[in-house]
Structures are given as C-alpha cells and as structure tokens.
C-alpha cells in the first residue's frame, strides 16, 4: 500500500507540471499584445510598459515560465492585478466557502444516496424500491439552476423557512477563523449563529447534491444486487454467517467499489455545479471570485485560480484512487 501510494504520488508530478504549463499559457494566449490587452485600450504607453515589466512579459518565454514555476514551488501564486494583494491570501476565504458547500453537498449525496441504494436493494421490487428509484430517475435529470430557483421560491419566498442568499445573516458580525463558517461558529461556541450558518447552507447544498445523490443511489442499488448474487456471498451464507454480516461485511465492501468510482467522477460534476449554485445563492465561493476576476480581466487571478481548482481536483481523484486500492487488493498488484 505504501509503495503504491508513493508511486501514485510520483505520477502526480508530470500532471502538476502539465497543468502549470497550461495555466501559464493562459496569459500568453491573449490575442495581440497581452500587456496592452490587460492594461485596456485607453491606457498610456507607459502604463502598458509597466505592466509588461511587472508581468515579466519582456523576458524570453522559458525564463518567464521558470520564475513562474519557482514562485509556485515557494507557494507564491502571484499578485492580483486589480487589488495588488497576494492571490494566495485573497483566494483563501473563497476556497473555504466553496469547500464548505461541496463537502456539505457530498455528505448529503453519499449519506442519502448509499443508504437509499442499500434499502432499495434489500427490499427489491417493493413499493419503497420503486418510489426511491423513480425519485432517483427524476433527480438525475433535474438541472441544478432550475432546482435552485425552485427551492428559493418554495422554501425561501413562499414558506419562508430558510434564507435564500449568502452564508450568514448580514446583521451578524463574525471574525472568521477557518472561513468554514460551520466550524468557526462551533469554535466560537455560538449555537445560534451555527444554526444560522447551517440554515444558509441547506438550500444550496441540497441543490448541488441532488444529481450526485440520485446517481449514487442507483449505482449502490444495482451494485448491491449484483454482489448479492455472487458465488462468494453464497459461500458466506454457507459458513453460517448471519444476514447482517453477509450484507455489511461481504456485500457492502464489494459493492462499494463501483460506488466509489462514481463518487470520484461526481466530484468533477460537483465542482462544476458549484459555480452555478454559488451564482444562484450568492455564495461567496471560488466560482464567484473567478467570475469577478474574468470580468475585470485580472489574468493573474484567473491563471492561479484555475491552477488551484485543477490541483484540488487532481488531489481528490488521487485520494479516491488510494481508497479504491485500499479496499481492493487486486488493484495494487495490477498492471499499473
């Protein structure tokens, strides 16, 4: 397992280098003179030269990339061109907001998806199974933005149960610690504000979780049913094991392999969906941050932002792969 992990970590290096080259290329793919474009049409020639110097655009490409990569290795993501603040510092709170939303959505999707799937397979062809799978089928085909708008209309406007925007009631003042509001409010020990943060989280998280939850439920069900029919489950029963052990030891572990694969794939969808959800629910996440940066043609922010999001995505996939290998010993010995 350790050897496999180390091997997989080494395989990460070329991926990361490739990604840094691509994001580096973004600034150079600006048509015409990048410095001019960044500075804007009305900028004075001095300003354009300043920007060119500032970005090192007057150096040869390999030197430019070299200093960019060196910066990255030292954790320096560059400075925002509009605010002049280090991007690493600036993006932190936004990243935390997105992470909180994605974690919440993932938790909802996995918890409800897996359990719905298990119950459905356990009660195969019952009314519970039929209605759960019907809902799952509908869930898969709902567009996130539509669901988000419907939620806002029903639970925020009509019923007034939950807030429809932001992360906290604007009247509440809080000095963030980790920028994960749920964690921060717990750290402050303020249950009232914690409840407010959770209430703000529910609608966007549910909107984001629906599609992955439906997919996870369906995969869990079919995978459980398939494993239940397999020879080794019959062997487990023939040993005299109780039904509980048969299901939770022998079946669930085997059935979790395809489920895990799907969860890994759904994370990509989730990150994409997060941008939409953040827009609908005015959630101050990375999606919003990058959206603003693009509007202001803040290319350094766009460049680093994309690199960060892509790196997170790659790391999450690596973690999923490692869990996968940890569950299934055949993978480590495979051809890879």
């Amino acid at each position: 397992m350790l050897a496999y992990t180390v091997r997989r970590l080494f395989m990460l290096i070329p991926v990361l280098v490739g990604m840094s080259i691509i994001t580096f290329g973004i600034v150079h793919m600006i048509p015409g003179d990048p410095a001019q474009t960044i500075a804007g049409e009305k900028a004075t020639p001095q300003r354009v030269e300043e920007i060119r110097k500032e970005l090192g655009l007057d150096e040869p490409l390999y030197i430019q990339y070299g200093s960019y990569a060196k910066g990255l290795l030292q954790g320096d993501l560059g400075k925002s061109m509009t605010t002049k603040r280090p991007i690493g510092e600036e993006i932190g709170p936004f990243l935390a907001a997105t992470a909180e939303l994605v974690f919440a959505a993932m938790f909802i999707a996995v918890f409800f998806g897996v359990n719905l799937g298990i119950l459905s397979s356990w009660r195969q062809n019952s009314w519970f199974d039929y209605s759960a799978m019907m809902i799952a089928l509908i869930g898969v085909s709902i567009p996130v933005f539509w669901l988000g708008l419907m939620e806002q209309w029903l639970f925020a406007q009509t019923l007034d149960w939950l807030p429809s925007n932001g992360r906290l009631d604007p009247r509440i003042q809080m000095e963030p610690i980790t920028y994960f509001y749920v964690i921060d409010t717990i750290l402050y020990g303020d249950t009232e504000v914690l409840w407010d943060a959770v209430k703000h989280l529910i609608l966007p998280a549910v909107a984001l979780a629906t599609v992955p939850m439906a997919i996870i439920a369906r995969i869990t069900r079919s995978s459980m049913l398939e494993v239940m029919r397999s020879d080794y489950i019959r062997t487990a029963r023939a040993k005299g094991l109780s039904e509980f052990w048969v299901v939770y030891k022998h079946t669930l572990k085997n059935a979790s392999i395809p489920v895990l694969t799907v969860i890994g794939l759904q994370l990509g969808t989730l990150l994409g969906g997060a941008v939409l959800t953040e827009t609908i629910f005015s959630w101050p996440g990375v999606g919003r941050y990058l959206y603003t940066a693009i509007g202001e043609r803040d290319y350094t922010v766009v460049q680093s932002g994309i690199l960060i999001v892509a790196t997170i995505f790659v790391i999450i996939n690596l973690i999923v792969d490692l869990i996968y290998a940890w569950i299934d010993p055949r993978i480590q010995y495979g051809k890879k």
């Binding site: 397999s230 020879d231 080794y232 019959r234 062997t235 487990a236 023939a238 022998h250 572990k253 085997n254 569950i327 299934d328 010993p329 055949r330």
Partner: peptide, 16 residues
C-alpha cells in the same frame, strides 16, 4: 453440514 461449490475462482471473497 458444509458445502463446496463448482466455481473455485469466484467462491472466495476477493477483498478478504
């Protein structure tokens, strides 16, 4: 009473 089955390749749980 014990039983052994036809398919030795699939009768053992691959994950344990």
């Amino acid at each position: 009473i014990s039983m052994i089955f036809q398919e030795p390749m699939t009768s053992l749980n691959p994950l344990f």
